[in-house]
Design a protein around this nucleic acid. Sequence first.
DNA 1: TGGAATTGATAAACCGGTATAGCTCCCGAA
DNA 2: TTCGGGAGCTATACCGGTTTATCAATTCCA
Lengths: 338, 338
Amino acid sequence: MARPTIADIATRAGVSKGAVSFALNGRPGVSDATRERILKIAEQMSWRPHSAARALGASRVDSVGMVIARPARTLGVEPFFAHLLSGVQSGLSAESISLQLLIVEDTAAEIEVYRRWASEHRVDGVILVDLTVKDPRVDELRALELPAVVIGGRGGKGALASVWADDRDAMLSIVEYLAALGHRRIAHVAGTPNFQHTQRRIRAVRDAAPRLGLLDAPSLTTDFSDAEGAAITRKLLSQSDRPTAIVYDSDVMAVAGLGVAMEMGVSVPGDLSIVAFDDSILTQLMHPALTALSRDTFDFGRQAAEVLLETIADPGTVINRRTADPVLTVRESTAPPA
Amino acid sequence: MARPTIADIATRAGVSKGAVSFALNGRPGVSDATRERILKIAEQMSWRPHSAARALGASRVDSVGMVIARPARTLGVEPFFAHLLSGVQSGLSAESISLQLLIVEDTAAEIEVYRRWASEHRVDGVILVDLTVKDPRVDELRALELPAVVIGGRGGKGALASVWADDRDAMLSIVEYLAALGHRRIAHVAGTPNFQHTQRRIRAVRDAAPRLGLLDAPSLTTDFSDAEGAAITRKLLSQSDRPTAIVYDSDVMAVAGLGVAMEMGVSVPGDLSIVAFDDSILTQLMHPALTALSRDTFDFGRQAAEVLLETIADPGTVINRRTADPVLTVRESTAPPA
DNA sequence: TGGAATTGATAAACCGGTATAGCTCCCGAA
DNA sequence: TTCGGGAGCTATACCGGTTTATCAATTCCA
């Protein structure tokens, strides 16, 4: 028989549907002997619950969603999301909860997706990335009463659950490392200005500058694209008092920056040190290989999944979990200034 | 009222549940006036169908699945999947069908996922990538009676629906281009040997060699990783009669190969021409920028989604749709041999 | 020993839709 | 005038689970 139902099992076992349901879900109401018998029959018939049927009765669908609002063009290159996804899945697979992934163009579309998911009961909760300042998604999700966890940014005033790493400390460790090498003119090619993590990193650079005796430490924002990363690098390196070190907020921009430096005849690390705030295979493929800040992105995803499941189970408590600190991996692109 | 049901609408409109269902689904059974009235009320109450309820009655869940069986480590770098995903989604969004994405370690795990999805009725169909020779997934899916479409490889003897591009012609165009430049010693760093597209590309190179008067045209297989791409390049460039041109089956391997060449003091394109069989931002970030074969991956995904939906609607007919031919984008990494 | 509490099970309602049988009008044709 | 038939709608079964009310049989305790 294809796709048996609990009614089939009940018939075969000579009991009622209810008894079968109790047995399969390990809840009281049947004797151990009967439970044993029912389980064996279910196993034999290779029964599996019909997800829709279960979702209709109990009101959970055993599925969570994740929407990424970035143009697909800038998305693919970064291993970040692939690692994050794998991590999220490993965190979900234990409970055999499935993941719905959606890539959309902008935040408006993303919010639209949340509304649809909520009204169609398609997901039990969602995972948020790229939190911005005064992010409209936070209020929206609260209004929809959709459990959520924010990746990489504290939920802020107890709003949403979150999983985060200390961006500030990480950025400080980079700047301090460069300062210790002797650099005094450090530039920071930052990401999208309204992302919270961008702001935190910019603030970290600004705060550290006087303490470390930096002559100049401008943070220049971009849209995270290789094109803008390259353009800003060109501008920086054309200045009369050009920086001796540049910190990039993503590995892709760092690679683009390296290309510009080579093109302009600026030797790396001789004339310019380069650090990427995010590690991946990309940075290792380059010549010279790039010094980069490594985060355990997989673990990040895994923990986000865990926190989300806890939040779904108990929407009352808001979890803010801090993950392992990122580590600076020194490679060939950094050296003392000439 | 939160989350209204059709019963709520029925009450408000003073009609029965059935009438509401007819009206909302645009089927006969209600007058135009009544339909109008019901639609307006549904709109006012911002009603949306409960996906589980709908899935239970009609037996479709309006959701399709895609499993990628590659270690996450090698996955992220390639923009290929991100573009493919976006394309798939754009093809699905028209019918507001959702996508379940899963990244697993190997084919065994992938098949396990299909079994689960089938028995739990979680998806209406699946999209297959990376078809291998004698792929076990084909028989499995047939046994599960799960509609499927294969991306980038003809389904083979009418088995599964497919969306494919002509790998053979594409590879021929690359080799012919290099031969026209004057290259006679061309190497091919191929991908995983048991992938069907790998075999097709290898065969194309082998068949073209004598016709174009190539002295040597070895195809060397890899696991698609940057590490193996680099290792094989090192070996090739160490030979006494080293190739004057290398074709790589992926952009990541081409980038790794370029790195090795630079490291060994082999100038590109002076001493060595490099072509990547797959384009992305990566190839453009390099110096020199890599000549690469561009495929419209987004469109590929979109068409796969369309074909899958047609297959789900009518499982009888097997569609084999050929997509636009790939185009060779010539950049700085190719030139006549020294 | 009788009544209360517990155990093991059943029948039936329910979740929110879809599908179908059937009922009531109303119109036109014989 | 009557009957057939279609339009418009209702009532109800159904999908495959979960959950609750109910009930009989047993155990417990005073």
